[in-house]
């Protein structure tokens, strides 16, 4: 994303290059252009742009990608910890959350 960058060196995104077949699915689904294709295989090109939405891991047919996907929402984390659940966007009635 142009201009806006969040805290660096935190993403849990991992790529097992051995499993990658170079199908390019991750480059198609990633909303932040984290991946690049190099020598017919995927490569994490911009890890700090990752927002851990989990689209790449879910759509990787080979299971080469892993990420602890979740909502990057402080409110959700607080609600989750108060209720002892995972951070969930329970503000579904509000237009913007997640």
């Amino acid at each position: 994303m142009v201009g806006l960058r969040y805290i660096p060196d935190v993403t849990t995104l991992k790529l097992d290059i051995e499993k990658c077949t170079g199908c390019t699915m991750c480059t198609i689904v990633c909303p932040h252009a984290v991946f690049a294709i190099e020598e017919k295989r995927s490569k994490i090109d911009d890890a700090d742009a990752c927002m851990e939405c989990g689209a790449c891991a879910r759509n990787c047919p080979e299971g080469a990608l892993t990420v602890d996907a979740g909502v990057g929402c402080a409110y959700a984390i607080m609600i989750g910890s108060l209720r002892g659940t995972e951070p969930t966007c329970d503000c579904a009635k509000d237009a913007s959350c997640c």
């Binding site: 969040y6 805290i7 851990e52 909502v71 990057g72 929402c73 984390i77 607080m78 951070p87 966007c89």
Partner: peptide, 20 residues
């Protein structure tokens, strides 16, 4: 402002946890 992380389109869970 911290709560606006949820509405933003680029914050990660790990990042928000670190910030919080």
């Amino acid at each position: 402002a911290m709560n606006f992380t949820g509405s933003s389109t680029y914050t990660s869970l790990s990042g928000v946890l670190k910030e919080m």
